[in-house]
Write a protein that binds this DNA or RNA. Structure first.
Length: 287
DNA sequence: AAGAGGCCCTGATAGC
DNA sequence: TGCTATCAGGGCCTCT
C-alpha cells in the first residue's frame, strides 16, 4: 500500500513522536508477518532509546542506542498508530491514513514508551519487522534496491544505459525496485501520464528525451506527494485526522472511464492489467 | 539471464 | 441474505 511518499510521512511523524524515547516494553500479539517475528525480537528493543528514524525506499529504519537496527516494511496494509497515554482520545495516527479509533483486529506489535506507545497493525501481513545487527549488514540487506527516484544517481546516463536491449515495458520497470526504488503502483501510473508515455511501451524504444521526462516526473510526482502528505485511499477514509491529500489530485489512478485532465485532450482514462497490477492511462495523449 | 506468472494474506465490494 | 469471484498501495520465489 504505502509507497515512498507515504512511508516518508510515517518516518517524519515517528521522528516527531518517538525520537530519543526509551522503549520500556514490547508486546508481540501476533508473530505472523511476511517473515515470522523472532522469539527474541523484544530483547533487542527493550530498554533502548530510539536514536533516529530513517527511510530508504519503502523501508523504515529505526536506529537504537545499542546500535542495532529495526528494519520495518509496511507491505500492502501495514499501519503504525501512535497513542499518547496521557491523552485519552482522539488518537493521533502515524500512518498517513488517519483514524480516531484504534484498530481492534490485526494488531501485531506494540512498542511502549513512558508516556506513549506505537501499535503496528497489518491485516494482510505482507509487512515485516526485522532486527539488523549493524549498519554494514543493513547496507547488505538493502543492496538489491536501485537508487531512489529523487537521488542524483537516478539520472539520464543510468536510465538510458539500463534500458538498452531490455524488452519489458516501462510500467514494469517503474515497479522494479532493483531499477528504481520507492515507486509503487499508484505513482507509476501518475508518472507515465505526465510523461505522455503508454505504460506498455517497451523501454528499449524510448529515446533520451523520453527517458529524461521519466526521471524528471518521477522526482516531481514523489516530492509533490510528500508535500501533500501522501495519498490516502480506501482505508480509514471519511475519518477525521491527518489524511494525505495527494489522492485528490490523481490524474489517472482510479479514474477509469473519466475524461483526461490534460487541457485540450479529448481522451478517456483506461484501465488495463499489466503484470497483474491495475494500470491507468489516457488512450489519447499517452503514446 | 531476463521476463512472466504465481503466491503470500485478509477484507471490501460487486454480481448473482 | 448469502454465497462466489475479483481486486487492493508489495515483494519474493520459481520456472522457462
Amino acid at each position: 500500500m504505502p509507497e515512498l511518499p507515504e512511508v516518508e510521512i510515517v518516518k517524519q511523524s515517528l521522528n516527531k513522536k518517538i525520537k530519543h524515547k526509551k522503549i520500556k516494553k514490547v508486546i508481540i500479539r501476533n508473530r505472523n508477518l511476511r517473515s515470522k517475528i523472532p522469539i527474541n525480537f523484544s530483547n533487542y528493543l527493550k530498554n533502548q532509546k530510539v536514536i533516529k528514524v530513517d527511510r530508504f525506499s519503502k523501508y523504515l529504519i529505526l536506529t537504537l542506542s545499542n546500535k542495532k537496527i529495526c528494519l520495518i516494511h509496511l507491505g500492502m496494509s501495514g499501519t503504525i498508530h501512535y497513542i499518547n497515554k496521557n491523552k485519552a482520545s482522539p488518537v493521533s495516527n502515524l500512518s498517513f491514513y488517519s483514524s480516531i479509533r484504534l484498530p481492534i483486529k490485526h494488531n501485531h506489535i506494540e512498542i511502549e514508551f513512558d508516556d506513549s506507545k506505537i501499535i503496528y497493525n497489518d491485516p494482510r501481513r505482507f509487512g515485516f519487522f526485522e532486527i539488523v545487527k549493524n549498519k554494514k549488514l543493513l547496507k547488505k540487506r538493502l543492496s538489491h534496491l536501485g537508487p531512489e527516484p529523487m537521488s542524483e544517481e537516478f539520472n539520464i546516463k543510468y536510465v538510458f544505459q539500463y534500458f538498452k536491449n531490455k524488452k519489458k515495458n516501462i510500467k514494469n520497470f517503474l515497479l522494479d525496485q532493483g531499477f528504481v526504488s520507492g515507486i509503487g503502483n499508484i505513482y507509476a501510473s501518475e508518472i507515465l501520464f505526465l510523461c505522455e508515455i503508454k505504460p506498455d511501451q517497451i523501454v528499449s524504444k524510448l529515446d533520451e528525451s523520453k527517458c529524461k521526462s521519466i526521471i524528471d516526473y518521477s522526482k516531481k510526482v514523489l516530492s509533490e506527494a510528500i508535500k501533500k502528505g501522501g495519498s490516502s485511499i480506501r482505508d480509514f477514509k471519511n475519518i477525521s485526522g491527518k489524511e494525505g491529500n495527494f489522492q485528490k489530485i490523481f490524474k489517472v489512478y482510479d479514474r477509469e472511464g473519466l475524461k483526461c485532465k490534460k487541457i485540450k485532450c479529448k481522451g478517456v482514462i483506461q484501465k488495463k492489467m499489466i503484470s497483474n497490477r491495475s494500470t491507468f492511462f489516457c488512450n489519447s495523449c499517452q503514446k
